[in-house]
Simulated assay, not measured.
Amino acid sequence: MPIYKREIARTSISTKSQTSDCDADKAPHSNDRAPGISHESVLYGKRQRSKVPKILRFIFSWLRSKFTSRTKKTKVLPFNADSSGNLVVTESKQTRVQMLIHSWGSKYAKNEKKFRRKYSTFEIIGNGTFSTVRKALCKNTQTKVVIKYIKRSLLPNYCALYDSKYDAHLPSEISILARLEHPNIVELQEFSKTDNHFILVMPLHGRHTMDLRQFISRLRAIDEPFCCYVFRQIVNGVDYLHENSILHGDIKADNVIINEEFQCKLIDFGSASYFTDDMIIDNFAGSVSYCAPEVLVNHGRFQGTEVEMYALGVVLYLLNFQDYPLDQSSEFFHQDENLQVASEDLRLLLISLLHHDSSTRCKMIDLLHNEWLNQRVAIEQYDWNKMVWEC
């Protein structure tokens, strides 16, 4: 036998003999061992890992899963992007929405501590099904903003999708707003993600801002030209969405904000989604007061943009008469008492928008060319303080 092999053999034999001699008395009796624990595992310290604090083992396990199995988690999520890079949501709704961030980019707050250093939050100004909205102040620029917190644990799957731009699964509200730029749609400045929330930062819309429903309830007086000016901005925003194959999903007076200069913006895109002309949507998330008849008949299923045209009709009715249409299912809707005092052009427009047959309901192209909607309005003659009651 070669010399080096003999040395290795001699060393291993002596080691084993020393171990057996030294530890013979230390080894526990077989009756003292816990069930399922072998003598060798006790002797050679395989249970020593139990001395590591549980919190450290949890942290190590979490770090290992986060950095070693990220790709596997991404593959099983029920969201995809098509060959053109467009955002799509699959039919599966079984898995809770997850978010795996590869890179936010330098403009986004990367963690909660950094976010808190950048913003000071104040009072709550709104609550939703799975979100809370607060006023805040950006410490860097001393500008007022609005921050929306979306609770991750409450976010349903149909309100999220895979975003190829950020290579992550995001709430549809974030993914859609990040691509929109229109004067009548709220702007998304930046967004972030913490352990419990998705966070959206949006600019504050004027000094005296309220939603359209609050504005209507505080009006001293109103006329048709002013209603036309406000409604035309809402229509322009919805038309921009439809041109980009987006449904807002919850058009109502509460989701329109107006400031002291009577500038309007659409907000709350939590129910927004992409659509195609032949797509059937089965998760209507709007309000019943603004719900088209075909949605109720089909148990929440609808197709196309006709449901949003109906919702626009309800907004226009509410704006002009400070009330909702009382009998929306009646065949004699054209005999409504409020419509009897409206101008002929407004009356015909409302009847067209609130038509119960979706195939004959007013289309967006017809609405944009409507004579009443395109009337000239001298908005400078209206004063906020004279029109709105102060709280």
Rank of each mutant, 00 (worst) to 15 (best):
S271E: 01
I280Y: 08
T19V: 15
A311F: 04
R218L: 09
S106K: 15
S12V: 11
Q263Y: 08
C228Y: 00
G45W: 04
S65C: 06
Y310M: 03
K363A: 02
G237R: 03
C391F: 07
I258D: 02
S17L: 14
P171L: 08
V52Q: 08
L63M: 12
R376I: 03
E308L: 07
V146Y: 02
K151Y: 11
E123I: 07
L368N: 04
D268G: 04
S83D: 12
I379C: 03
T11C: 05
I55P: 02
K114H: 13
T19F: 14
P53Y: 03
L349P: 00
P78K: 07
G206I: 04
P325F: 05
V238C: 03
L349M: 12
R116Q: 12
F67S: 10
K135G: 03
I246Y: 03
H356S: 05
F67K: 10
F333G: 01
D211Q: 03
R213Y: 08
V97W: 03
H39A: 14
H205C: 14
V76F: 08
N385D: 15
S103M: 07
I216C: 08
H242S: 05
H208R: 15
L326K: 15
N259P: 11
E306P: 02
L180S: 09
H29W: 05
N370H: 14
E123Y: 09
F269M: 04
P53T: 03
S164A: 12
I185N: 13
G128M: 04
R347V: 00
M279D: 13
F321L: 07
Y44S: 05
A178M: 14
S38M: 11
E190V: 12
S38C: 13
C391Q: 04
E7T: 03
V186L: 15
E187F: 12
L318M: 09
T121H: 11
D282F: 10
P2S: 09
K66T: 13
C264T: 11
F333E: 01
H182D: 13
N80V: 00
D278Y: 09
W62Y: 07
H208L: 10
N259A: 06
Y317V: 04
R116E: 08
M210L: 12
I251T: 04
F332Y: 10
K72W: 10
S12I: 12
V145H: 07
S131A: 15
S61Y: 07
L63W: 11
G304A: 02
Y240D: 01
I125F: 08
D278S: 14
M99T: 14
C391D: 11
N374T: 02
Q142I: 07
Q303V: 05
C22S: 13
P183E: 13
Q98G: 09
D32S: 13
Y108E: 08
V238K: 04
Y229L: 02
K110A: 13
I199S: 08
D250T: 09
K107L: 13
V314R: 03
I8L: 09
E187R: 15
I251N: 01
R10T: 08
P156K: 10
E40Y: 15
A9T: 06
Y162R: 06
R213P: 00
Y317F: 15
S153A: 10
P293D: 02
L319M: 04
I258P: 05
I281C: 06
W372E: 00
T276V: 01
S192H: 13
R33M: 15
F198I: 14
L247D: 01
K5I: 11
S12T: 05
D223I: 05
F269W: 02
V42A: 10
I351P: 00
